[in-house]
Simulated assay, not measured.
Amino acid sequence: MPGQVNWIELPAADTAKARTFYGALFGWDTSEFGGDYHVIGNGPAGAITAAEPGFTHPRVYFATEDVDASVKRLHELGGRSEDVQTVPGVGRIAHCHDDQGTPFSLYEPADPS
């Protein structure tokens, strides 16, 4: 459903410590997806990943059926975005900011066929 939160990413300076912390707090387990990206297995749909400059707070992904159309509309409304990225086998994403500077991301799932 468009606009529904469908993924979160929790950035951490030390992902091993973060996985231990959230595992103890919520009972989450994780599995490595690649690099320092660890998918949460028994919690919210999302991952614990390495923090980067400009990515130090949780990132929320909102569902969209057409990321290109959503990015176009975002720009019309005064928001801004990075280029749309394709994640092979996963879908297409765009990291964005609303018209007040609040960061969020858009996610269009890959065609299951």
Rank of each mutant, 00 (worst) to 15 (best):
G35F: 05
D36H: 08
G79I: 02
D36G: 04
T64R: 04
H75W: 04
F55V: 12
T30F: 11
A69P: 06
A18E: 09
T102L: 07
L25N: 02
G78N: 11
T20I: 04
Y37T: 10
M1R: 14
E108P: 00
G101K: 14
E65Q: 13
E9V: 03
G23M: 04
H75A: 10
P58C: 09
V67Q: 03
V87G: 02
V90L: 08
A12T: 08
H38G: 04
E82S: 00
G91L: 01
L25T: 14
V39E: 12
E65N: 14
L77M: 14
R92G: 00
A51S: 15
A12M: 10
N6V: 15
S113D: 13
Y61V: 06
A69D: 05
Y37C: 09
H57E: 15
A63I: 01
P112F: 08
D111N: 15
F26R: 13
P11D: 03
Q4Y: 06
Y107F: 15
E9I: 01
V67M: 05
F33S: 15
H38C: 05
H95W: 05
E9S: 13
R92Q: 06
Y107V: 03
G41T: 13
G89L: 08
T15W: 01
D99A: 15
D111K: 14
G101I: 06
K17D: 15
P44A: 04
Y22I: 09
F21D: 07
D66V: 03
D83W: 03
G91K: 05
A94H: 01
I40A: 06
N42P: 14
R59N: 14
P44V: 10
P103Q: 07
E76W: 07
V67A: 02
S70Y: 02
A16V: 13
H97F: 05
D29H: 14
A50W: 01
G101P: 13
V87A: 04
P11Q: 06
V87W: 05
T86G: 00
H95A: 11
G34S: 11
K17Y: 09
D66H: 02
S105C: 11
F104H: 13
E76C: 12
D111H: 11
E65F: 01
S70P: 13
